[in-house]
Design a protein around this nucleic acid. Structure first.
Length: 96
DNA sequence: GACCTGACTCAAC
DNA sequence: AGTTGAGCCAGGT
């Protein structure tokens, strides 16, 4: 279901540049619904959006979070973009 | 209404 | 000090 909320979230995530990583909460804020960050996790994790770098969205505590295709792929893609992972935790500058 | 996911807080090791 | 788990809350599908 493409709700207005999803549309906003997708739009924000699509704008995330390579090597940049945001938290689900931050995405919700940029989408204009700072209180709906929980929903952001649901949408990004369940929907496989090829054009949506949902792998660049991680948890605010710097952990991977979830991924439709697998957490391993998510970590791999992020590392390729310059994001360093340590024990499943991100060690890079990202807008919390 | 149920289930799922993430953020925040606190406690314990 | 750093890591981990559990519980609580909010919203969407």
């Amino acid at each position: 279901m493409r709700s207005n909320f999803q549309k906003k979230v997708f739009n924000v995530v699509k704008k995330i540049p390579e090597g940049k990583v945001l938290s689900y909460k931050k995405v919700a804020e940029l989408a204009g619904l700072p209180l709906s960050w929980r929903a952001v996790g649901n949408i990004l994790n369940k929907n496989e959006d090829k054009r949506i770098p949902c792998h660049r969205v991680v948890r605010a505590d710097r952990k991977i979070g979830g991924y439709n295709k697998g957490e391993r792929i998510k970590t791999y893609l992020l590392k390729k973009e310059g994001i360093i992972f340590k024990n499943g935790k991100i060690t890079s500058r990202f807008t919390k």
